[in-house]
Amino acid sequence: MRTLVSPTQLRSPRGRAVYWTIFTVVMALFLLAFIFPLFWAVTGAMKDPAELARTPPTPLPTQWHPEAYGDAWSQMELAQYFLNTVVVAVGAWAFQLAVDVPAAYALSKLRPVLGNKILAMMLVTLLLPASALLVPTYVTITDLPIFGTNLINSPTAIWFPAAANAFNIYLLKRFFDQIPGELLEAAVLDGASQLRILWRIVLPISRPILAVVSILAIVAAWKDFIWPLLVFPDPGKQTLSVAIQRMQIDMPLNLLLAGLVLASVPMVLLFLFFQRHILAGLTDGSLKG
């Protein structure tokens, strides 16, 4: 297959030198763009406030203050906000899997009437800006239809709107479409119900895409700011993103940076640990025998 650089050119000494030079420069630029903000935040938190505000900034602290992380943890009471965020993220993850997996399975394998049109209408919601949905969603959770319940200051105000995610349903459906119909037909002949087929056959072989959907759900709930800001007016129930923003006025800049670093550590570790599953789930187009 012809590419921008032919195999013959790549095999020549000059071609290899040019290729590796360009590759190294591009990778260095990407690493600099992604790593430098993290490096600046981690080291900036260990500077004193005066040095952190100095112009031009110092590349490294002249005096290291690693105790800033402990001070931020205690003064900002991050333990409570970590717990609040974990509850919100885990609940949003569980609700999304409980709704999106059966919906995707039904659209993929049960073939309901007007299923393609239903999926198309779901995907159209992805074209709507999130800000356009804030007011109707807020009105809905302040007076939940049928139940007439106000969900303000309750984690369910996050869980319910996050449950039906069109993008996750689409990802799951595309993966379920690759599962051979003969495998499910054999289970039906053995007397298995659709629920049993989903639980015992489909889910075990769908672990890569389930890992992707799980990570997307947890990260989205962890980093969300606008919606938690609206539904958690009580400071004691706020998530990390909202609480840190609220405290930025009275908190020294180095402690604020330390709090931001601590808040981002779980998601960075989650991505590093599961990055192989993310790539495998997004690119897996077939089943391995």
Rank of each mutant, 00 (worst) to 15 (best):
Q194T: 12
L216P: 08
G259Q: 04
Y69N: 04
P204I: 03
T156F: 14
A106E: 08
A132F: 14
R174P: 06
F39P: 04
L287D: 07
I244K: 00
M27V: 14
G44M: 07
P145K: 11
Q275D: 06
L198K: 01
T283A: 06
A263G: 11
R174D: 13
P37F: 10
R276V: 10
G44T: 03
K47V: 02
F23H: 14
F225H: 09
P57L: 04
F232W: 02
S12E: 05
V212W: 03
L255D: 01
R196W: 07
L172I: 03
L203P: 01
A79L: 12
V219A: 12
A263I: 01
R54L: 06
T140G: 01
V86A: 12
P208E: 02
A211L: 05
L172Q: 03
L269F: 13
L195E: 12
S6H: 08
P252Y: 08
L38H: 03
I141Y: 02
R207I: 06
I226G: 13
A92L: 06
W64F: 15
I215M: 13
A166V: 05
Y170P: 09
V87C: 11
S286C: 09
A79I: 08
L52G: 11
S108W: 02
V42Y: 06
K47L: 02
I179D: 13
I197Y: 00
A28P: 11
L110W: 08
I201Q: 07
I244H: 00
M27Q: 13
F167T: 00
F167Q: 01
L230Q: 06
N165Q: 11
L107P: 00
P235E: 05
L229Q: 15
V219G: 04
P161V: 10
L31A: 11
L110H: 08
P13I: 12
Q9P: 01
A53G: 14
D234Y: 01
W64T: 14
A41L: 13
A211Q: 04
S131R: 05
R174T: 11
P204F: 02
T125M: 01
L172C: 05
V42A: 10
G259W: 00
A258I: 12
P180T: 12
L262R: 05
I215W: 03
S206R: 08
L240A: 08
R246P: 15
R54K: 08
G15N: 04
G15H: 05
K288H: 10
